[in-house]
């Protein structure tokens, strides 16, 4: 029994020594890049905002649509939500914007609020503006033609 335990722990020890090596060989880097902790990371490349444009086609059902315009300087805090000054149900027509959908009014118990619910208040948690960045990894996702 003791021998078995010993063999087991040796095996585990061995594995913990080897696995990081395998990982390292695959060149897994953090987003910071391959830098020692006490070194500065490489400066990120500056990206440009894309010009305002048509709504960007959605790839799947219930996808939060991407933001087709600049959002520079738009503030969202407890006192005021800049996005809602164009996307609320009372403002969207005047602004020529898409109104937020009904789903945005429901809290997690499915109570319907009089305006956007707290869990949908911080828009940029789900909706993201676009810059001229190349995708970090290749993406082979294809939407089903029937639900596109």
């Amino acid at each position: 029994m003791k021998k078995l335990l010993l063999a087991g722990s040796v095996l585990i020890l061995g594995l913990t020594a080897v696995v990081p090596q395998i990982l390292a060989e695959e060149q897994v880097n953090s987003l910071r890049g391959d830098h020692a902790l006490d070194e500065n990371s490489t400066e990120p490349e500056m990206k440009n905002w894309q010009l305002d444009r048509d709504p960007i086609p959605r790839d799947h059902v219930k996808q939060p649509p991407l933001i087709p315009h600049k959002t520079q300087g738009y503030k969202i805090n407890l006192k005021f939500n800049k996005c809602m000054s164009c996307h609320s149900w009372t403002k969207y027509k005047e602004a020529g914007a898409t109104k937020i959908s009904q789903s945005h009014f429901e809290d997690r118990e499915n109570n319907v609020m009089a305006n956007v619910a707290a869990r949908r208040y911080f828009c940029t948690q789900c909706h993201v503006p676009q810059v001229d960045a190349k995708p970090l990894v290749e993406n082979t996702f294809k939407p089903l033609p029937t639900v596109k």
């Binding site: 407890l78 005021f80 939500n81 403002k91 319907v112 609020m113 009089a114 305006n115 619910a117 707290a118």
Partner: peptide, 11 residues
Amino acid sequence: DASVVVGQTSK
């Protein structure tokens, strides 16, 4: 303007 802040329960 209640449309630019978080919604309250409509009850």
